[in-house]
Amino acid sequence: MLLSELAGLIGLKMAGKDKEISGLNTLELAGPTELSFLANAKYESALAVTKAGAIVLEEKYADQVESALISENPYMDLAKAMHVFARPQGCLEGIHELAFIHHEADVDDSATVYPFAFIGKGAKIGPNCKVFAGAYIGEDVVLGPGCIIYPNCSIMAGTVIGTGCIVQPGAVIGGDGFGYAQVSGKHMKIPQIGTVELQDQVEIGANACVDRAALDVTRIGAGSKIDNLVQIAHNVTTGEDCLVISQSGVAGSTKLGKGVVLAAQAGLVDNIKIGDGAVIGAQAGVTNDVPAGFMGAGSPLLEKGNFLRSSIYHRKLPDMAKKMSALEKRIKALEAELSKED
């Protein structure tokens, strides 16, 4: 593909010499037919030595390279270019004879279903969906247009998945929530009779779990992205465009507002509310409601400034302990001298 053609596809202006582009790579590793990018000024010096055929960069750097695509946001526009060159997973089209599809399921003619996938009674598989090998699609599940269900996913009965959603390998959507009543020291299971809804353009990472509601619905808001190995408990709801990063856990009935970010291994207790745009740092422990726009970290959770200050003090604790011990010895010595004078 010519650089000029790529520029037209992703809506950028080309500067310099037109040339053939066959792929993308980093500034360090890109070759003469590959496109790279400069998104951080600290890597500007790499422009002088890179072998990349062309660079996506801001206009102020364009005179340093032979060929460029001019961008106000190089990282975002590189992502657009990656969509052009990305090859979709899979090698089959249509419905394979070794897939099991219940006679009362409704699978669109344009969908692809791989061998050994299971599609249950009453399920509806929308146009251009892909259901890979080993996937389980339970009774009355709805997949909106263009969904991709990767190998060995389990989409349990009654789950509703919107347009363009992606469920990565091994994820479980709609498994039972963790609900038990204590009876004479024993644990009696509470049936989880609600559902799960993934709104449009949601992505669920590999081996993540989104549990079905005890009652009503567990809902992941449109555009939200759930990373690998995340646990979303029963009756949790998120707003649009949330990011929940690897190994985080959100306990039952907690509500996330729009655009909330939970960094890796954050843990949220049940029945709290996280306001729109809040950012929770890695390994944070969140036990109370969080206001909109809050930024914080730590366990228990602290506001960002307080967390950073406490981190500084924490590193000084060994020295402070030594000084405190020395002061205690001096005080005891002074007290001993004073008692002698008395």
Rank of each mutant, 00 (worst) to 15 (best):
K322P: 01
P300Q: 14
L92S: 13
Y136K: 01
D109Q: 07
C147L: 03
D216S: 07
G285T: 05
L301E: 10
K273D: 13
E20S: 10
E44W: 00
L256Y: 05
A292T: 02
V196Q: 10
L69F: 02
M188W: 11
A181L: 06
G175Q: 13
I312L: 14
V261E: 05
A208F: 01
L2D: 13
K60Y: 04
S110V: 08
K189W: 02
M320I: 15
I173N: 08
G23P: 12
G179T: 07
M188P: 00
T218K: 07
A62P: 00
I137H: 02
I125T: 01
A326F: 05
K323A: 14
V141N: 01
K80E: 10
M324S: 11
K225T: 12
I280Q: 08
D216G: 14
K121I: 00
Y75P: 05
V244N: 10
G177N: 09
I101C: 10
A117Y: 05
A48Q: 10
G177T: 13
Y313K: 13
D63Y: 02
G293N: 09
E240K: 13
A181G: 09
T33R: 15
G293P: 03
L92I: 15
G223A: 11
N235Q: 09
V250F: 10
K186P: 00
S325L: 06
I220H: 10
L29R: 14
N228M: 07
Y43L: 06
D18Q: 03
G298E: 09
E5L: 13
A133S: 15
P191E: 09
I204K: 01
G126T: 01
L256W: 03
T237S: 12
D140M: 11
M76G: 03
K186W: 03
A48H: 09
A135G: 01
V202Y: 02
I21K: 01
A123R: 06
C242W: 02
Q247S: 14
E203S: 14
P300F: 12
A297G: 15
V172Y: 04
K329Q: 14
K225A: 08
V49E: 13
P115C: 12
S246R: 06
D77I: 04
L24T: 15
D200V: 05
C242S: 11
L3H: 01
A181K: 07
L301G: 14
I312K: 03
L47W: 07
S71F: 08
S325N: 11
H102A: 15
L27G: 08
K304S: 06
A7E: 00
Q283S: 11
F85C: 06
A41G: 04
G223L: 10
E303H: 05
M188G: 07
A39D: 15
P291R: 13
N152I: 08
I155A: 06
V260Y: 13
T254S: 15
G293R: 07
Q182A: 05
L9H: 07
D140W: 05
R219G: 09
Q64K: 15
V250H: 03
S339T: 11
E66V: 07
M295P: 03
A213G: 12
K80H: 07
A105Q: 06
G194D: 10
Y136E: 03
C147H: 02
P151S: 04
A336E: 14
V183Q: 11
A284K: 06
T195R: 14
K322N: 06
K225H: 10
P127L: 02
V196W: 10
V236M: 04
L215T: 05
E203A: 11
Y313N: 14
G94E: 08
K13Y: 00
L317H: 02
G158E: 11
G146C: 06
D289M: 10
P300W: 15
